[in-house]
Design a protein around this nucleic acid. Structure first.
Lengths: 233, 233
DNA sequence: TGTATTCAATTTGTCGACAAGAAATATGCA
DNA sequence: TGCATATTTCTTGTCGACAAATTGAATACA
């Protein structure tokens, strides 16, 4: 019936937390667990066929990344998307776009570019296939690959968190385009990658800024237009 | 004999993890637990007079902040200071100095300035008292207060982590000054605060940048000069 | 003597159970 | 009936114990 508990006996020692963490994280980012969803430890322990201890450890990690909120001695739930302080998010996102792209132009090595180009190809394929879900994740992974070419773990760490946290928002964004427009982003990405390859840090930064600000402006337009959360609550 | 286990019975439910987390965090940041120190769960559970479960939860949190490294099924230890990739750290630190100060000038409210000035007074007192330890923590708290006036939790989050992670490095730094020079920083702080109060974002950013770059340059000079880690191993 | 294998000891990951808090429900009183 | 208090239920935080993984020592073998 459910193939998660069937793993009960074939599970490697120590893999339990990671499995729970990864699955819950995915479900939160994909809005299968919408913001505000209650998280029940007992229920999860039954679902995954393990005791509450590893479940709890996974939850602590998720809380550390801000994906869930825990009220002491009381319930824990998927963290809300804070639409009031959205500008904080956009500020941080734009800055990380800029700085990671700039550093990528400065510090990348040849092998980094291969990875980046592979991610870009995946993104282009997703756009071609009009697969919004795939666009979201491949876009995030492309920019994360660029960030990693910049070799600053502090920036990639924050950027990764922002991109993840943003998936829940960006999902709205991409849906709104009706899977049409993003083709332009493929070209913008190509320009950025070219600037990185040419080690033109200024151009790379400028393109990243424009790219990011355009995305932000578009999302903001959507938000004020009011077509928010088409999420089941 | 030891007053940590004596808390065994007077402990409030749920406070266990926080106590352990706070104490270990302090001991790591103050280098009482130097980088590379082994962390033994059983030993800690005896020391704090509680079971391994809350200890473990505290360790997971510390690992999430990068203060300890955990090898699966093997030992866990206080994370090393990576002197090779130090420039990544400095890049991130300088950028966060700049952006948080700039945002503080933009978004601060009157009550924020009171807190900032109080922190600055504490820093000045620490400098006056030639108390290097107090200088480190009050300096970090001043800049964190400034960051919080900027009201961007993503930046303050990263900045806080950088300042914390940096305490271990900055400790070397402040010691090297023989508790003499930092008086200038009191003045620099005053200038920054004035620029923030005047809502001069450009000036605030410029001063923050100079302030940060000066600190970084000084630390780097120390590092290449070779007077590294006077830390017992 | 040096290398490979087996065994013991230590440490970590997981478990099931219990107890404390908080929320929900029921009871008592005006 | 309306409100305050007591009780029950449910969830979370903590505990002690066990089992798997790993390390280091001890043994066997060449």
């Amino acid at each position: 019936m459910d193939n998660e508990t069937s793993l009960r006996n074939e599970r490697k020692r120590g893999s339990g937390v990671k499995v729970v963490y990864d699955i819950l994280r995915d479900e939160i980012l994909h809005l299968e667990l919408p913001p505000g969803s209650p998280i029940d430890e007992v229920q999860l322990s039954e679902r995954f066929g393990m005791s509450r201890t590893p479940i709890r450890e996974a939850l602590v990690r998720l809380a550390g990344e801000g994906l869930i909120d825990t009220l002491p001695n009381r319930s824990t739930m998927v963290s809300q998307i804070d639409f009031l302080n959205m500008h904080s998010y956009f500020d941080a996102l734009v800055l990380m776009y800029r700085v990671t792209t700039q550093l990528a132009a400065k510090y990348h090595r040849p092998e980094d570019l291969e990875i980046v180009r592979a991610r870009q190809a995946e993104f282009a394929a997703a756009v071609e296939a009009q697969d919004a879900l795939a666009m979201i994740s491949t876009n995030a992974e492309l920019h994360l690959a660029i960030a990693e070419a910049g070799r600053n773990p502090y920036f990639t760490g924050l950027f990764s968190r922002l991109l993840n946290e943003g998936r829940r928002i960006l999902r709205l964004y991409y849906q709104s385009y009706n899977d049409r427009l993003p083709r332009r982003f493929v070209e913008e990405h190509d320009e950025m990658i070219a600037a990185i390859a040419a080690r033109d840090t200024e151009l790379a930064e400028r393109l990243a800024r424009l790219h990011a600000e355009q995305i932000v402006a578009q999302v903001q337009k959507l938000l004020v237009r009011g077509d928010r959360l088409d999420v089941k609550l």
